[in-house]
Amino acid sequence: MNQHAPRQILHAITLAMTLLSGAAFAQVDDIIRSAHLSSAYAAIINFSAEPDISSSHLWIDKGSPDETQMRITKFPLRHEFKLKNHKWKPMVQATLARLRLDLTLDMDPANRIEPEWESYSATFGGGVRIPLSKHWSILPAIDGGYAHLKNEASYHGPDAIALQPLLEGKLFDWNADAWLVNGHLALFYNHQFGKLAVDAHLAGTVGHIESYDTTHELQEFSETISTASIKIDCTYPLGLSIAADPLFVVGHLGNSTILTDLHADLGISSIYETGLSLQADISRHGLPIKKIGLGAMVLWGEDAIGWALRTSYRF
C-alpha cells in the first residue's frame, strides 16, 4: 500500500488484517481506535470555499495501485453591501459543498476493498470589508454550519469479504453528523495598471469541526484545522463583446495549503492552481451582479493532479 494515500486509513486496514490470523473479535475496536482516524474524517469535511462556483476532480497518486480520487463541488453565494456615508462593506455568505473521496485498497492481487467517503456541508456567516488604503483592504469573517459524512465500502475477494462483518459500521459503512465553525481573515489588493486589472488576496482560516451523532463512537471526532491560501487574478479586455457586453480574459494563479498535520491524512499538503476564464461585464443591465465568468483550471501538488471548472460572479 502506498504511503501517500490517506495514511491513517491505510494503517487501520493493515492492522485489521491481523484479525485474519486469529485475533479476537473484541480487538477490532482497539485496532481501529489506535489508528486515530478522527483527524482524517475532519480533513475530509474541511475543504474551504472561495467566492466562486466550481466543480473539481483531483487524483492523488494517479496510476498507482492505491490511487485516490477526490471530487469537490461547491456553491458559495456571497454579497457585499454598500453603506451610505461609510467605506466599510458588510458581507454575508452561504455555502453548500459536496466532497467525494474514492479509494482502492489492494490487499493482494485477489482481494481488495473499495471505500467511498461522501461529505455534504452547509454554512452561513458574515464579515466586513475594511479599506486600509486605495488599494488595500482586510476582511475578517466568521461562519458556521452543519456537515454530514458517510462511508460505504465494497469488498472483493474471499479475504476481503471475511473482513466485512468485522469492519462494517466501525471502519466502513457508517454515518456521522457534525457542526463546524470557521474564523477567516483575508488581505485584499487591487490595482489598475493601464488596461490590466490585478486582484489578489491572502487568506487564513482557523476552523473547528466536531461530531455530535455517529453510527459508532469510533467515528467521533473533534479537530481544529488551519489553512492558508493566496489567489491572484489578472484581467485584461479582449476588445470584443457579446450582445454589447464587453468581454475580458482573466488569468488565475493560486495556492491552498493545510497548515496543520491533517494534510498527511489525505496525502496532500498543498494544491496549486492556474487557468483562464472568459468574463463578461453585464453591469449595463442594472442587475446586482456586475460581472460573470466561466473558466477552467489545472490543479497540481505533490503526488496530486487534477482540473476544475469555475463559474465566477462579482457584485
Rank of each mutant, 00 (worst) to 15 (best):
W88H: 06
A24L: 11
P51W: 11
R33C: 00
K84C: 06
D52H: 15
A35Q: 05
V92P: 06
W88T: 03
S64D: 08
L58R: 08
K89S: 13
L83S: 05
S38K: 03
E50L: 11
V28K: 09
T73V: 14
A5C: 04
Q93C: 07
H57T: 05
I9K: 03
Q69C: 02
L10E: 04
S55E: 02
A23E: 07
D66R: 05
G63F: 07
F47G: 06
E80F: 09
I53F: 11
I9M: 10
A43K: 08
A24R: 09
L58M: 12
F81M: 10
A12Y: 02
S48G: 04
P90L: 09
I44N: 05
E50D: 15
V28S: 11
G63A: 03
S48A: 10
R7L: 09
V28Q: 09
M91G: 01
F47P: 00
I32P: 10
I45N: 07
Q27L: 10
G22N: 08
F81R: 00
I13M: 07
I53H: 09
R7C: 03
Q93K: 15
H4R: 11
L15V: 03
A94H: 02
P76M: 10
H57K: 13
K74Q: 15
P65C: 03
D52T: 14
I60K: 05
A16Y: 00
S34V: 02
L20I: 02
D66F: 07
E80Y: 09
F81K: 00
I9N: 01
Q27V: 08
I44S: 01
L15K: 11
W88C: 01
A24Q: 15
L10N: 10
A23C: 01
H57V: 02
D29N: 14
A94M: 15
P51M: 12
G63K: 08
H4K: 10
E80S: 15
M70P: 00
H36V: 06
D30F: 04
T14D: 12
N46H: 12
Q69F: 08
F75I: 15
I72D: 11
H36Y: 10
K84S: 13
Q93P: 04
D30T: 09
F75C: 06
E50F: 07
P90N: 12
P51R: 13
L83A: 08
Q93G: 04
Q69K: 12
A94Y: 10
M91L: 13
Q8T: 04
R33Q: 08
K62V: 03
S48C: 00
K89G: 03
S64R: 14
A49S: 15
S21V: 03
A42T: 05
N46C: 01
K84V: 03
A24S: 15
S39Q: 11
G63P: 06
T68G: 04
P65S: 06
E80P: 01
V92L: 15
D61E: 14
T14M: 01
T18Y: 08
I13H: 01
N46I: 00
N46A: 13
A12F: 03
